[in-house]
């Protein structure tokens, strides 16, 4: 059960391999010059783990929100690899990835954000080990809505400082992170398997239109 995880919401592509919820390879931990393409990272991962492409039984892919080109690149690769191997692909939002990562460390409700155009943002809320929701729009309004009845949160993403200034009444912990670590895709792969889709279904990016 070799799982391939592809994260595209961080500053660069991150590719992980895992087996039975155990991380075998994380491209983020390699000393690479920047901007390696996915194929190169993948071949490196297979070499390090001594596996072949045919060993991959499942692909977990980050469907954003994040840098639109990078998210699409990861999804295009994941979909076509899954199609050509005849296996399924599990879409995971970058918000869930960030939430799982921060929850594992702080055990607190998580607000994760991604910057968008026109002063808008993508805001995700993660609580009790689960993604509660993702919305697109005005930061203040959406964070207010998500945190109703909550007095303590941890923040991940681009707007961490802004949220702390906006909500002085909330106890806010800064995760210090812009996004979740891709290793979660390998270490928690069981969590994502029930959403696996295979051709004619495939993964599509989260955009303001799909929310």
């Amino acid at each position: 059960m070799l799982t391939l995880g592809i994260s595209t919401s961080s500053g660069q592509f991150a590719l992980v391999f895992g087996e039975n919820n155990k991380l075998l390879f994380n491209s983020d931990e390699l000393q690479f010059s920047a901007n390696k393409d996915i194929t190169e990272l993948m071949l490196k991962g297979l070499e390090v783990t001594a596996k072949s492409v045919r060993d991959i039984s499942n692909i977990i892919v980050d469907i954003g929100p994040g840098g639109t080109s990078r998210v699409r690149t990861g999804i295009a690769f994941a979909n076509s690899l899954a199609y050509s191997l005849g296996i399924s692909v599990c879409p995971v939002s970058s918000m869930e990835l960030a939430g799982l990562d921060a929850w594992a460390e702080f055990s607190l409700p998580v607000i994760a954000t991604v910057k968008s155009i026109g002063g808008n943002a993508y805001i995700g809320f993660f609580n009790n080990g689960k993604l509660v929701g993702i919305e697109y729009g005005n930061l203040k309004n959406i964070v207010t809505k998500f945190t109703e009845g909550t007095d303590e949160i941890v923040v991940v993403g681009y707007h961490r400082d802004q949220i702390r200034e906006m909500f002085p009444e909330l106890k806010i912990t800064d995760s210090g992170k812009l996004f979740g670590n891709a290793r979660i895709l390998a270490e928690k792969s069981d969590l994502f398997l029930d959403r696996a889709v295979s051709f004619p279904q495939y993964a599509t990016p989260i955009t303001e239109k799909t929310l």
């Binding site: 393409d37 996915i38 194929t39 993948m42 492409v53 080109s69 699409r72 690149t73 990861g74 295009a76 690769f77 994941a78 979909n79 076509s80 690899l81 899954a82 199609y83 050509s84 191997l85």
Partner: peptide
């Protein structure tokens, strides 16, 4: 990028 990465995935698979 969509075409190129689709091709890359198919080529590997």
């Amino acid at each position: 990028l969509v075409g190129l990465n689709t091709a890359a995935g198919l080529g590997l698979g």
